[in-house]
């Protein structure tokens, strides 16, 4: 048993070397002697002998790569393509799906793709990358041995994450200085300014980010959500729950009996399954005891899937509109 790991690493090394050898014979134009290096959100610096060409990525991170014209060879999902907000309208032609359900990546399929890099965000709380957390299948964990894993840091600012992906694109040779990428950045700067101005004009407005479940209401902790961290930094009063769960501090777990514990002027609803979540919430007799819920002051909250300027701009605009419409003196 103990011998297997070194053997796997050895095989991986040989494969990587073979691949980089192939890479240099095929592609004479790139300066492969320099190799490729980029810093991961975990703080580790990842180096390869050549620019990564065969990337396997987690769904939402893959969407970001695709928007920069970087096409992964493989992708793993945590919900069906039809419902994944990050993959809406994204062309997955030619990309192999190596995992359809959360926590279960098909290691054989992934290995057959001969990846040289895996792109997935890093979650410092769990000290793990997306798809390789503690409770995933043993087979999934093996996939992380196939190639180095790199991704943005999911604690701190969402703006930093977006910048990270642009930097990653630059590092693999994408020219992000002009064209649609510059437009995307401009849209984002405009949306951010509009957001900040609207918030400043509505100083008394408070918001609460929630995710309703059948038997519990989850209240988001701003410090563990990169989008909420940004909103707070830009002047929005995001209510900070007083009693987050000790071992999973992303949320406070609230019983529906205490749904009215926090009274915001505007509710931000986890949009990973917006319609389903709203339906679940409306079934609860105490949902309308939150004044904002009764007044229908609810707007989607893109909890964790934004990775590009375009996406961020669009979501900020939507949120700004909702803030503009909201009544700051509701509660």
């Amino acid at each position: 048993m103990r011998l297997r790991r070194p053997r796997l690493v050895a095989i991986g090394l040989i494969a990587a070397l073979a691949l980089s050898a192939c890479g240099s014979t095929d592609d004479g134009a790139s300066a492969d002697e320099e190799g490729w290096t980029y810093e991961s959100g975990s703080g580790d610096t990842i180096s390869l002998d050549a620019k990564p060409e065969r990337i396997i990525a987690s769904a939402q991170e893959a969407a970001a790569l695709i928007s920069y014209g970087i096409k992964p060879v493989g992708i793993y999902l945590s919900q069906p393509v039809e419902t994944e907000p990050a993959l809406k309208g994204v062309d997955l032609e030619g990309i192999e799906i190596v995992g359809k359900t959360w926590g279960k990546i098909d290691a054989e399929k992934a290995a057959a793709l001969k990846p040289d890099l895996i792109v997935a965000d890093y979650w410092p709380q769990e000290k793990a990358y997306s798809g390789f957390e503690e409770s995933v299948s043993a087979e999934s964990k093996k996939v992380a041995d196939l190639a180095p894993v790199i991704g943005a840091n999911q604690k701190g600012s969402l703006e930093d994450i977006v910048e990270w992906y642009e930097g990653f694109a630059e590092s693999v040779g994408v020219d992000t200085s002009g064209g649609k990428y510059a437009e995307g950045r401009q849209k984002y700067e405009a949306a951010k300014k509009r957001f900040q101005d609207t918030v400043k004009a509505k100083k008394d407005l408070s918001v609460l980010a929630v995710s309703p479940a059948d038997d519990m209401l989850y209240v988001a902790v701003p410090a563990y959500s990169t989008s909420l961290t940004d909103f707070k930094a830009w002047g929005l009063d995001v209510i900070d729950p007083t009693n987050p769960k000790k071992d999973f501090p992303y949320w406070e777990y609230l019983s529906w009996e205490k749904a009215d514990k926090y009274q915001p002027d505007l509710l931000l609803l986890d949009d990973r399954d917006y319609d389903g979540s709203l339906k679940t919430a409306k079934k609860q007799p105490t949902w309308n005891k939150i004044t904002a819920a009764e007044a229908d002051a609810i707007t989607p909250w893109p909890g964790f899937w934004i990775h590009t300027y375009d996406q961020y701009a669009g979501q900020l605009d939507q949120l700004t509109d909702a803030i503009d419409k909201a009544d700051a003196n509701l509660s």
Binding site: S78, Q79, P80, T83, K100, T101, W102, G103, K104, S211, P212, A213, D214, D215, M216, Y218, S255, W256, R272, D273, G276, S277, T280, K283, Q284, P285
Partner: peptide, 26 residues
């Protein structure tokens, strides 16, 4: 578990079926 995990974000509504609970039963 296999069916529930195909949509981990619907997990909030389906987690119920892995652990019994009388909360949310109205």
């Amino acid at each position: 578990t296999g069916v529930v995990m195909t949509n981990v974000d619907a997990l909030n509504e389906l987690r119920f079926w892995q652990v019994g609970s009388i909360a949310g039963r109205y």
